[in-house]
Design a protein around this nucleic acid. Structure first.
Lengths: 209, 209
DNA sequence: CCTACCGATCGGTAGG
DNA sequence: CCTACCGATCGGTAGG
């Protein structure tokens, strides 16, 4: 018995471990494709223990998503501060976006799956947590357009939308979809190209400035 | 009894109807989230009837995918011919890509779900059916680069990859992910902006030509 | 193409 | 945090 019998410590361990394993399994196989028993086995506890900690399978799913959004909430202020330090810098923003999702593949996979499986809940989740931040981006972009530093034909909302959609798409399935091409572009190469595309599409052609 | 009792006709009807309903349900809820009974109810037959026609649930899934890829195989030659008629035209290609997936939302959803749920099978499917065609695109793009008509910094494989990934991403979840922004960009607006981005990222800046 | 039915597994509860 | 167990549903088979 090297393990502390303190219930509070055990609680923390099981809950943390369960969140980690559920995140991994839900991302890989989807929520519908993952049984509570499969999570319980991965954690090394019984099925009712999971129900005790999270109320239900749906409670576990919500806890996993809340944890993901929590990470996001912690990082966003830091990212936005860094990116807008010397005026909004597109590259810094994209690099931060890439880094966040590269740190844990499950993040992009879970987001994409949630978008597919629960459209309404997904929309509500974005509205609640992220719309204020994207508003800052489009605002900065309009300012850039007014100053002639951003392409005047760009639609700020659609531009930001597409960049985020593409980044998450590449990070979630870039290693599968690249079977389309030969030779296969690595995820890193795809992200570099995305940055180049974004830059070219944002900055006005000199003769139009 | 207005319906013909001919078994062959009924066979065709049930199979066709089952494929249609399964496509819709698999796209909406995923394969794991759709029971054979749910498909049977939607078609109006019993569950064993589906097993008779498709062998198993997995057989039904494969039939749905084959039908999707079949459509693609029929349209691709037409698309490529139209797009390369007067030299490769980016806009024509993108419009054809958009049109194909807009015609039936399930197409983009199913592809995305398959990429998530069965990575290896998805890669094999792309390699088998689509890599030759994308090879034509990168080839045309390299020719454009050599002629100074396409941006020399672009990575052809990564560029094509990203355009397709983004188009499918927008068409599959553009109506959910746009809750990120306010006002929400419509899917049409997103596609227009994607075309603009692609054009700006492909064509070299004049001073570099 | 159906009814009847199979064993296995599902999410969740009772009770401790 | 467990064992024991619940009814419901799963994909699939038997037999016609």
């Amino acid at each position: 018995m090297t393990r502390a019998p303190t219930p509070e410590l055990d609680d923390l361990d099981v809950r943390t471990l369960a969140l980690r394993e559920a995140t991994r399994l839900f991302a890989e196989r989807g929520v519908a494709g993952t049984s509570l028993q499969a999570v319980a086995d991965a954690v090394g506890v019984s099925k009712p223990t999971l129900v005790y900690h999270f109320g239900s399978k749906d409670g576990l799913r919500e806890a996993v998503l809340e944890q993901l959004l929590g990470h996001w909430q912690d990082e966003l202020p830091r990212i936005m501060a860094a990116a807008t330090a010397g005026g909004p810098r597109l590259e810094a923003l994209l690099d931060a976006l890439y880094a966040f999702f590269l740190e844990d593949r499950s993040r992009a996979l879970l987001l994409l799956r949630e978008a597919l499986d629960r459209p309404d809940a997904f929309r509500a989740l974005l509205r609640q947590h992220l719309t204020p931040w994207t508003g800052l981006l489009t605002q900065a972009m309009r300012a850039g357009q007014a100053a002639g530093m951003a392409h005047h034909k760009a639609d700020p909302e659609a531009f930001v939308q597409i960049l985020i959609t593409t980044a998450i798409g590449v990070l979630a399935i870039g290693d599968r979809a690249n079977a389309l091409l030969s030779p296969e572009p690595s995820v890193d190469t795809q992200l570099s190209e995305l940055t180049r595309i974004a830059r070219a599409a944002l900055h006005p052609h000199p003769q139009e400035a």
